[in-house]
Computed example of a mutant assay.
Amino acid sequence: MAVLVSDDRRRSTSARRRARAGRTAGRSLTHLVLLGGGLLWLFPFLWTLGSSLKSPDGFFSKGLNPLPDGVHAGNYSSAWQQASFGRYFVNTVLVAGGSVVLVLLATSMAGYVLARTNFPGRKAVIGLISVTLFLPHGYTIIPIFDIVRGLHLLNTVWAVIIVQASSGLVFATFLFMGYFSTIDRQIEDAAKVDGASFHQTFWRVMLPLSGPMLATVGLFTCISAWNSFFIPLVFTLSKPELRTLPVGMYSFVGQNSTDWTFLCAGSVISLVPIVVIFLLLQRYFVNGLAGAVKG
């Protein structure tokens, strides 16, 4: 009997070891696949970064090799000064910053009203807003262009800011509506007992509590405005000095030749700020999305 028990224990121990080894091998294989996918995903950025430091001859001789033939940091200064990237950078900051401010102000108030009030026609308003979410920008650009021209804002930074901000209002409103729906109503009731009005409750209580969603919507809007090409191109077409970075990068593309190393340097200049902003706000970004989905 003792021999049988001992054999059963050995078989059980051996089975556990094999199962543990299988799980370890499975995790290792998963990590390798994810690491390979991550490197494949990062390769275009690494290649752009390396190519921005290459010489014009090295750009073509190295091919897809991301390692530069030498550190030609002058590509960045040339892109910044000779190609007016400094001006494009300032324009992009103005457009992105202005769009973020307008979107946060408008959508936070709209989302709070839709989440916390039951006014007549509320469902109809939500349905109408939902329909506009699926309208392609190409179908609405002509009437928007006529409105901007009628307001005498064509070929101004304000035109780009207003149109760019309007493109993200619907999605951001729904995010705020979902987030405000998760906040306990007892907080509002306590504010009302203290004598706060509807507007005071929003500005002094609810808006400060929506910090994660403010960061989330601000990040979405900033990325969208920073990378936008179509809207800045249309509304600053006759004023090249008002170009943003995505539009300005086309100045490196000529009819007969293209300054590829300068183009890569300009791409890195345009990518680094938005990557830094995302890294700084990623914690609030995740919390804000979790709150909106929960709502």
Rank of each mutant, 00 (worst) to 15 (best):
L214G: 02
R17L: 12
A110T: 09
Y179F: 14
V268N: 01
P143G: 04
P212I: 02
N75P: 08
A2D: 15
L4F: 10
T92Y: 00
G86M: 03
L214F: 04
A159D: 03
V293Q: 06
P68C: 08
V33L: 12
G291W: 01
A190R: 08
S224R: 06
L29S: 10
G295W: 01
E241D: 14
G58E: 04
A110C: 10
T24N: 15
G38F: 03
L128G: 15
R283L: 11
G58R: 00
K294Q: 13
L46Y: 08
F278G: 06
A25G: 11
R10C: 08
S61K: 06
R149Q: 13
L281N: 05
I269G: 00
A19F: 09
T244P: 00
G97P: 06
S251A: 10
T216H: 00
S130D: 14
P143R: 03
R27I: 15
D194T: 06
V93K: 00
V131G: 05
H199L: 15
W47Q: 04
V5A: 11
V286W: 02
L271V: 14
I147A: 13
S52H: 03
G254C: 08
G138K: 05
L151M: 14
V160E: 01
A265I: 02
V276L: 08
R9C: 07
V3K: 10
W158L: 12
A96Q: 01
P56Q: 04
T216E: 01
I161H: 00
L32D: 07
A172T: 03
D69L: 08
L153V: 04
H152C: 11
S12K: 10
L154D: 12
S267D: 07
H152G: 12
L94I: 13
M109G: 04
R9H: 13
L40S: 09
V3I: 14
V157R: 05
L175N: 00
P66A: 03
A124G: 14
L94R: 01
D184P: 07
D57G: 15
A106I: 14
L245P: 00
W260M: 12
S238T: 15
G36H: 07
V100L: 05
Q82G: 08
S78H: 09
G38I: 02
F285I: 09
Q282L: 06
L102D: 01
R23M: 11
T258H: 03
L34D: 10
T156V: 09
S224D: 12
D189I: 11
L29P: 06
S108D: 02
S84V: 11
Y284Q: 14
R17C: 09
V276S: 02
D259F: 02
V253H: 03
S257V: 13
G178S: 06
V272H: 06
G22E: 09
D146F: 13
S181Q: 06
I142H: 04
I161W: 01
I277M: 06
V90M: 04
W80C: 01
T92R: 00
S108K: 00
F252S: 00
F134Y: 09
R10D: 11
G248A: 04
T92E: 00
S167L: 07
W41S: 12
F229V: 09
